[in-house]
Design a protein around this nucleic acid. Structure first.
Length: 423
RNA sequence: GGAGGGGUUCCCGAGUGGUCAAAGGGAUCAGACUGUAAAUCUGACGCGUAAGCUUCGGUGGUUCAAAUCCACCCCCCUCCA
């Protein structure tokens, strides 16, 4: 348990944004196995890669000998965190939130170890201690510790209060109190002394530190991780297809792998620090080597490999690599019938083609949103069928020319593929 | 409850009776250049092969003609109570 190490390591990786009572916290971490928590609210039935940094951070703490608690926000998810959000969110029903919470809980469980002695992980749901709380008791025992004057000063809600044209409901405004209460409860029940989260959570975390001191007379700590940004200013974690989810039913392992492969050079070394467990020295060596080699860097494929393995395991990674190799580095005409079957198995986007025209096929496979778009793509020379460019918008798909009589590999643009088949 | 302001295509945002499928910007997509990178340039960006059709919070109405006018309703914001 080498704790200056842990903090140093996080620091070198650029993973520390804010930290409360740093010197004290370092000493605290150094003296014992501490309990660390991080909350994840169910805003969908899966986490997305935006949650990956804190999730992996929990694991980093566990590897350093501390006990992680992953909290699924069954209660807070019903309210909606206003922190740095410009709009009020719409509420989901209790049933939906409960379903999502169950799924999130399940996902969280895959990233931390539940069977490693005294620092075995825990997964909890804050609904367990919130649901039974009656309003009056809550307002008297908890609410009394909060000053509205202080709450409205928090940067996280400021824009909602000050900006013309937006507002904040009492419901969302109360979110901070709920999260603070979580920290106090976890401190009481599990002797939790540290909360981590994205830097947008700082206001909520410090609220929890204050409440725990008042309620339990305990000194607890907080630490925040950076929100991942891209060098070009774009939103991290989105593609044309939308959010990159951790659930392979929502984002296929192949798409997940490809997402990382497409990381910009300007971001990739930071991302290696954020999203892998490679040593900082190793990462630096990779950067050096890439620089020396000119041309195409290795970093992206290392990042994709590591991140995909972390989230989807060795098997998922192998499948994603097989598809990627087949589509991007090999000559597809050398693929065997069995290879095509394997690609389908591996989760390559594929579907049975019902149509005979190329335009219909593009629409049916979602490679184009409308017939009009499909024609435009074809006209632009953006569409390849079995590796050959087709530029006639009126082209038909002739099954006699399909690979093995039943496979059409459709490509739109540089990176989007779809395997169409018959039967 | 009172007074005022506002809801426009993915987002921001112009548009106050025809010239509006609706300026401009952003995002996104495609092509060229590359390395499945970035930057840059070009093009696309409601649907339809087209004629044309469907959009501007909702429902009705006025008009030859409405995103633009009227009525009612819903939602949001600001101030007052």
């Amino acid at each position: 348990m080498t704790d200056q190490h842990l903090i140093d390591n996080l620091n070198q990786r650029g993973l520390l944004t804010q930290i409360s009572a740093e010197a004290e916290l370092i000493e605290h971490l150094g003296s014992q196995c501490c309990t660390v928590y991080c909350g994840f609210d169910p805003t969908a039935d899966s986490l997305h890669i935006g949650s990956l940094v804190p999730l992996l951070a929990l694991r980093r703490f566990q590897e350093a000998g501390h006990r992680p608690i992953a909290l699924a926000g069954g209660a807070t998810g019903m309210i909606g965190d206003p922190s740095f959000k410009s709009n009020e969110r719409k509420l989901n029903t209790a049933e939906v939130t409960a379903q999502w919470t169950a799924k999130i809980k399940d996902q969280l469980s895959r990233f931390i170890d539940f069977d490693c002695g005294e620092n075995s992980a825990l997964v909890v749901n804050n609904l367990d201690w919130t649901a039974g709380k009656d309003v009056l008791t809550f307002l008297r025992d908890i609410g009394k510790h909060f000053s509205v004057n202080a709450m409205i000063q928090k940067e996280s809600v400021k824009q909602r209060i000050e900006r013309e044209g937006e507002g904040i409901s009492y419901t969302e405004f109360s979110y901070m109190i709920l999260q603070a209460y979580d920290f106090a409860m976890l401190n009481e029940m599990h002797d939790c002394t540290l909360q981590i989260g994205g830097s947008d959570q700082w206001g909520n975390i410090t609220a929890g530190i204050d409440l725990t001191r008042r309620l339990n007379q305990q000194q607890v700590y907080g630490l925040t991780l950076p929100l991942v940004t891209k060098a070009d200013g774009g939103k991290f974690g989105k593609t044309e297809e939308g959010t990159i989810w951790l659930d392979p039913k929502r984002t296929s392992v192949y798409a997940f792998y490809q997402f990382w492969i497409n990381t910009a050079d300007a971001d990739v070394y930071n991302f290696l620090k954020y999203f892998t467990f490679l040593d900082i020295e190793e990462i630096e060596a990779i950067e050096e080597a890439d620089k020396a080699a000119q041309g195409r860097p290795e970093a992206q494929s290392i990042l994709a490999r590591e991140a995909t393995r972390l989230v989807h395991g060795e098997e998922g990674l192998a499948g994603a690599q097989r598809i990627s190799d087949a589509l991007f580095s090999g000559d597809i005409s050398t693929l065997t019938e069995g290879d095509f079957g394997q690609l389908k198995q591996d989760g390559m986007p594929s579907s049975r083609l019902e149509s005979s025209t190329l335009v219909d096929a593009l629409v049916q496979t979602d490679l184009a949103k409308s017939n009009k778009m499909a024609r435009e793509f074809i006209g632009n020379g953006a569409v390849l069928v079995n590796g050959k460019k087709v530029s006639d918008p009126a082209a038909n798909l002739d099954w006699n020319q399909a690979f093995f009589g039943k496979f059409f590999l459709l490509k739109r643009g540089k990176k989007l593929f779809h395997l169409g088949y018959c039967e």
